[in-house]
């Protein structure tokens, strides 16, 4: 879910750009470190970006009849970390605005903050907390992805509420109203995205577990045992 061009007043466009920029700079710094350590990572990062782009231009099996699409950022967040993901996401969002007319240029900063920074950060945190516990690997993936998606939408609602506070009750009631309206499409979407990405993850575990152990996404034993059970 992207805010579209022209929707936010210029002051807010500026604010979100100011918040997004240091995160992106840090992301680029990390990206350079990743590439220096392992040059082969470059095409893999590229494929992840292409994959996120394609995923978000696909229409999911329609749940509510709206144009809902997965963000795909959760998967990238625990493969490459949240900061590198934010750079990939920024590029993907730029492509989406120029390829598909989704989102926009002045609101790119706001969209980067919601989809590229907060969403992946939440997903990654959940994944890091649960990774070394005894919680099932697939459940971890599901929770991380679903919450990454949910928080993307919570932050988008907050961005809208800050720009357009209500006459009575101010930002808080405006936030609740935006949250309520978008919940109709976004809550089922987050659950479906969680299920779909978990199934994708399961498929990768079954067919090509070496990808996951190479990136050290999960402890090796967890992956091998899950792969052999399936």
């Amino acid at each position: 879910m992207h805010i579209m061009e022209g929707f936010l007043p210029w002051q807010w466009c500026l604010v979100w750009w100011i918040i997004a920029t240091p995160c992106l700079v840090f992301g680029v710094y990390q990206l350079k470190k990743v590439l220096e350590a392992d040059r082969e990572a470059l095409p893999l990062l590229g494929v992840t970006g292409g994959f996120i782009f394609i995923l978000s231009s696909l229409k999911l099996p329609s749940v509510t009849g709206s144009c809902s699409h997965p963000t795909g950022t959760g998967l990238s967040a625990f493969c490459f970390g949240p900061w590198v993901t934010s750079v990939i996401c920024a590029i993907v969002l730029l492509f989406q605005s120029l390829f598909l007319a989704h989102g926009g240029l002045s609101v790119l900063g706001a969209n980067i903050v919601s989809m590229g920074i907060v969403g992946p950060l939440v997903g990654w945190t959940i994944y890091r907390v649960l990774r070394d516990t005894r919680v099932d690997m697939y459940l971890t993936v599901f929770l991380a992805v679903a919450f990454a998606d949910l928080f993307t939408y919570v932050v988008t609602s907050l961005e809208l509420a800050l720009a357009y506070p209500a006459e009575v009750g101010g930002i808080a009631s405006s936030f609740i109203l935006f949250l309520g309206i978008f919940a109709v499409t976004q809550v089922p979407l987050a659950i479906v995205e969680g299920i779909v990405l978990t199934l994708i993850f399961k498929y990768i575990v079954q067919l090509k577990p070496d990808i996951l152990s190479q990136l050290q996404v999960f402890p090796k034993e967890k992956i091998t045992s899950a792969g052999s059970v399936a």
């Binding site: 494929v47 994959f51 779909v196 199934l199 994708i200 399961k202």
Partner: peptide
């Protein structure tokens, strides 16, 4: 649809990975 969509994305992810290598 959900099952097919997941298989679609999974197989595409793996084949893209190979293509990238």
């Amino acid at each position: 649809s959900i099952q097919s969509f997941a298989t679609l994305c999974g197989s595409v992810f793996i084949s893209s990975w190979d293509a990238a290598e």
